[in-house]
Design a protein around this nucleic acid. Structure first.
Length: 104
DNA sequence: GCAATGACTGGTA
DNA sequence: TTACCAGCCATTG
């Protein structure tokens, strides 16, 4: 079975700590961890996102992962995430939905 | 070791 | 608002 790196584990831990109805951008997570960059966070989700609420991690623009907009939209509607656009291009209202974890 | 790639970001047009 | 460009950082061939 596959083991994951500490960095990946940290990313998944932060993503898993995001409450329903809120989201974080790739860059925010990378900045919060203080390591790597948004591309590395996205890479972790593409690899291990299957076991974490990846739909709560979106671009700084408020758009979900490309190719998964519909899948993410289903979760947003179910969790009551503040959407700025309920139709494609799907956009989340970052102003309200952006989750800031404790510790800043 | 270098070049290309990727679930990214910010700025400018 | 959308489109294009340059920058950033780790992985992969």
């Amino acid at each position: 079975m596959s083991e994951i790196d500490d960095y990946s584990a940290q990313v998944l831990d932060v993503v898993d700590s995001i409450p329903a109805g809120q989201v974080m951008s790739y860059g925010d997570i990378a900045e919060y961890l203080g390591a790597g960059g948004p591309r590395q966070v996205g890479r972790v989700l593409s690899r291990y996102g299957g076991g974490a609420p990846w739909w709560r991690v979106i671009h700084a623009d408020g758009t979900p992962a490309e190719g998964h907009e519909t899948r993410a939209l289903e979760h947003y509607l179910a969790e009551g995430t503040p959407l700025r656009s309920a139709a494609p291009p799907v956009r989340v209202n970052m102003r309200q939905a952006q989750y800031i974890p404790p510790g800043e």
